[in-house]
Amino acid sequence: MGLPSKARIVEVGPRDGLQNESGPVIETSIKVELINRLAQAGINHIEAASFVSPKWVPQMGDAAQVMAGITRKAGVAYAALTPNMRGAEGAIVARADEVAIFSAASESFTRKNINCSIAESIERFIPVVEAAKKNNVRIRGYVSTVLGCPYEGEIDPAQVAAVARELLDMGCYEISLGDTIGVGTPVKARKMLARVANEVPVNQLAAHFHDTYGQALANLYAVMQDGVSVIDTSVAGLGGCPYAKGASGNVATEDVVYMLNGLGIETGIDLDKLVPIGNWITQQIGRTNGSKVGLAMACGE
């Protein structure tokens, strides 16, 4: 099939990147500024918040204030993760352009993560999807643990395909396939994608690969050769998974953009504007920058 000429980056740093930060809750103004800066760098799809209980995810307790505080840029989609009906209602009131719902390809992971089975998790999202459709809000679906599970190990690609198909049939316009613990390798990633593509068109699939074992860029390059052109990334490689031991952050947006630039694939993102954002946000929250490109370009300044 060959590599795409264009790719869409879905920036998940403000949500997936910041939600598991331990220590003090990050100020709303910092989250708002992060989102605004990312949009100014040319990112046109930003997962801005998660409408969850602050009891479970304290860092996302100010989702409504964040959505109210951002300066909305024309052509940018501002998305929110919504685990239940209450979250969906909050996101709709906050004028999210898109809501995201999530399940997993592993029964054990789903039970540990959201305390129910895969079938129950999908059932729970029916009213969320109905509410979003009624309000003309797009719905994006996530499938976690597509290339491995911390509890079950190997995951059958047929299971990933079945869950992805259910989310598509519910009304998700796009399904993001998550290597939550970052254990995938290029051959495994392509095999999984081939199976899922039997159920969901490749142009409705996205790759959400973590970099725990340093394989994310290689895995992304592999699935892009098979037609994937939507990639979830996190500025400075922020984030991880609280239920997956040792799972380091998402693949860094800077590193992916650098690779795509080298491949001649258009993203519309200005790397020179993006790199300082990663350096800034990591300083704000007292983290090390997880982007190799960010560190290299900062050294070259």
Rank of each mutant, 00 (worst) to 15 (best):
L34K: 07
E152H: 14
I155P: 10
V163W: 05
V52Y: 04
V160L: 02
R140E: 07
T212V: 00
S29G: 02
V257E: 00
A41N: 01
G290H: 01
I285Q: 13
C172N: 01
V230D: 06
G290C: 10
S103P: 04
T185F: 12
Q225E: 15
G148P: 08
L217N: 01
G184M: 03
N36S: 06
A88L: 11
R124K: 13
D272F: 03
R190E: 12
S121N: 13
L205Q: 08
C116G: 10
M1H: 12
K133L: 15
E89Y: 06
M67D: 05
K245V: 04
A91V: 06
N261P: 02
K191Y: 06
V275P: 01
G214F: 03
Q204I: 06
P4E: 01
V52I: 14
I101A: 05
V275R: 06
A161M: 11
S176L: 00
S291D: 03
A105I: 00
V235M: 13
P276F: 09
V146K: 09
V257N: 00
L295D: 13
K31G: 05
R138Y: 11
V223Y: 08
V137H: 10
H45D: 14
I265Q: 09
A68C: 12
A100P: 00
S106N: 04
I269D: 00
E11G: 09
A104N: 03
T212E: 12
T185W: 09
E152F: 13
I70C: 06
G214Y: 08
S291C: 09
Y213E: 15
N279V: 10
A48H: 01
T145D: 08
A131H: 07
A105L: 08
T288W: 04
Q225I: 10
A105T: 00
L260M: 03
I122H: 05
A104G: 03
C299H: 13
A298S: 15
A194S: 14
N250R: 11
G286E: 08
G69F: 02
Y258E: 12
W56Y: 11
V12I: 15
D226H: 15
G2H: 15
G268M: 10
D255R: 02
E199C: 10
N261Y: 02
V52F: 04
A207K: 03
G17N: 13
F109L: 08
A41D: 00
K31C: 00
A164M: 12
L238G: 11
P150D: 06
S248G: 15
P83S: 05
C149E: 01
K112V: 03
T288H: 12
V251S: 13
S22M: 13
P4F: 06
A41F: 09
F51K: 14
A161D: 06
G171V: 09
G182L: 01
W280N: 02
E89G: 00
A105W: 04
G2Q: 14
T267K: 00
C241M: 13
C299K: 13
R37D: 00
N135I: 02
I26R: 06
G17S: 04
V256A: 01
A216Q: 04
D211N: 13
L38I: 07
M85T: 14
A207Q: 04
V163P: 03
I114K: 00
T180C: 09
I70K: 03
F125L: 11
R124V: 07
E120C: 07
R190Y: 03
D232G: 09
F102G: 00
D232S: 08
